[in-house]
Design a protein around this nucleic acid. Structure first.
Lengths: 347, 347
DNA sequence: CTGAAAGCGCTTACAG
DNA sequence: CTGAAAGCGCTTACAG
């Protein structure tokens, strides 16, 4: 009923606890005979080391924590999957917490994880978060912290990101290259770095191409639960307020799909009347009609890389080496589909 | 740098470790003065109990494990969210593992969790799983185990389910009530109980209404990554093989949306030519055109209830009470939308 | 009201 | 090759 302990094995075998411990871990200074004996009994008794005791001795939990704003989200669930798959390979278990984009919750959750003595933390910060003390505290405790996707530039830790500005630039450039002259942008909330960067990339592409930047063409979305609705609403507003718009770069696919739905309902032709580029390459983007041109944001890969970096730092800390924060930038791709025109070959 | 311990507080204050421990936990037999003194110092030193030591003593980790077939999945990510939200309230942290529908992985993961000494386990079993020893082992160790959604009927543990058979019956009945005479079914894989039950509900509705059951109208989908594609492929096959079909009950929304996409492409009118009912009420179901009539499967609620049940059993075990397995059935609803006809009032 | 004692189950450095 | 000793940091029953 109660789990087997080293003591039980030692007593039934008439040897000492340390010897049992060492035999099980194949220490070279234990006789083959003893090892065989111990291992056999351990197996029959289904011995499993008590992880609490092991943790207490080794000061490691072989567990990491991850905090994300939202679990029910295509991008983040892919990131989680990437993290878990990689962590499992290295013998780490993963505790998941969801901040709901709330700074207070995020702070509390960081504390929960620290209390649990996780070995390291992976985080994509909440939109609300503007104060980073809870995060620098983690680093000050010499506990590895890696940020991904939604990062805070000021915090000195490793980060797994994409070049949002560049990707947005490419997306907007594609609209320009395919003939759009008046391009709107449905952006994300004001605070998070990636929605700022996507906006800046959009703006720069316009200016570099000699198109004027018009702030009234920029619509804000919260990109939460209601993304699809926001897409529809903004599409309707845009149609009313700016009849001359012929292209939109949209912060996230879900919003873009909402917009497409609304446009189709109103018989606006895509891409002929309005071309659309989304962001993230959610699988529905290739499924809808017309399929959506978008920027592929590699969630699974981001998760994998985030864990790999954390793992490196975990090992560094163990060897009492200093952690040198690394910024890892993953590539994105423009996926051309039906929601934008094909580039006309110019002579 | 290193975390504060009880010893440090005791030594700087010149009192014993047990007194510090008791002061911090507000034991009645410690003087107010001592308590105040201890608490203040604990606060300034940012004392946090070492969870490893606490676990070792109390034999509790305040951590539970959850195993699901797939994280990147609307239903499951909602369940996870429900579990986590509830667990956090009760001071439990959640470790998540993904079985990829693989029996071997699932077995390994159960062991991982047992090795970690989680207090309890929540699981939705893999399609492949037909042997349940790894699960009964958990129960035999007196460790609470609660199944949800994809369950094994033989295993004696609590289960959070919906009445798949009834829901499927209602879905099919709705097709019949709205005038469908020849109804196909796109079912899930052969093994999992819920896909069996949905199939049986479909079949029973046909028979109860005097319609003949025709096995050739039942198509199998794996319902994995390729659900959308499977929907398209099966829709195309159906059109070729059974031109007379006027209604389909589909195992899961994603497949249904694939089917709708294919039908629209081929100018099949929905619901006039073919009516469709899905299953799960994925949010895209209300977004697509035509919007999808479907069965609402309350993922978040299932997660919440699953944790609540586990929590009850956790407490029971602590009090050395016997766990009485409970089957909790949550209600589903038929959500009528555009992919089925409105019921004609008969006189 | 306070503290000495025992112990949770393991690991590691050291003695023999 | 084996084992006695110390200790990780806490908690709880008990003595005073």
């Amino acid at each position: 009923m109660t789990p087997t302990t080293l003591r039980q094995i030692a007593e039934t075998l008439g040897i000492s606890i340390p010897t049992v411990s060492k035999a099980l871990k194949d220490y070279p200074d234990v006789s083959k005979k003893t090892k065989a004996m111990v291992k056999e009994l351990a197996k029959t008794l289904n011995y499993k080391p008590n992880s609490f005791a092991v943790n207490l001795r080794t000061k490691e939990s072989k567990t990491i924590g991850i905090i994300i704003p939202e679990i029910v989200h295509h991008f983040f669930s892919n990131v989680i999957k990437g993290i878990i798959s990689q962590a499992e390979k290295k013998g780490y278990l993963v505790i998941i917490l969801q901040s709901n984009e709330s700074y207070e919750l995020e702070k509390k959750q960081i504390n929960l994880l620290i209390d649990k003595r996780v070995d390291g933390i992976l985080i994509s910060i909440a939109n609300e978060t503007a104060d980073f003390k809870h995060l620098t505290d983690v680093i000050d405790q010499n506990k590895p912290l890696v940020m991904f996707d939604k990062i805070a530039k000021i915090v000195k830790c490793s980060k797994i990101i994409i070049d949002d500005r560049k990707a947005a630039y490419i997306a907007t450039q594609h609209l320009i290259d395919t003939g759009c002259k008046r391009i709107a942008h449905f952006r994300g909330p004001l605070l998070p770095q990636n929605s700022i960067d996507r906006f800046l990339g959009y703006k720069k592409a316009l200016i570099d191409n000699g198109l004027s930047y018009d702030p009234s063409l920029v619509y804000i979305c919260q990109c939460g639960d209601k993304s699809f609705e926001e897409g529809k609403i903004n599409a309707a507003r845009l149609l009313k307020e700016h009849k001359d718009v012929d292209g939109i770069f949209i912060n996230t696919d879900m919003v873009a799909i909402g917009a497409i739905t609304e446009f189709r309902k109103r018989k606006v032709k895509i891409p002929e009347d309005i071309s659309i580029v989304g962001f993230s390459n959610w699988f529905m983007s290739s499924a809808i009609t017309p399929s959506l041109t978008t920027i592929d944001q590699p969630g699974f890969k981001i998760g994998k890389r985030a864990f790999k970096q954390l793992y490196k730092e975990l090992k560094a800390v163990k060897k009492e080496k200093i952690i040198i924060p690394k910024i890892i930038e993953l590539k994105t791709n423009l996926i051309k589909r039906e929601s934008t025109k094909t580039i006309s070959l110019k002579t």
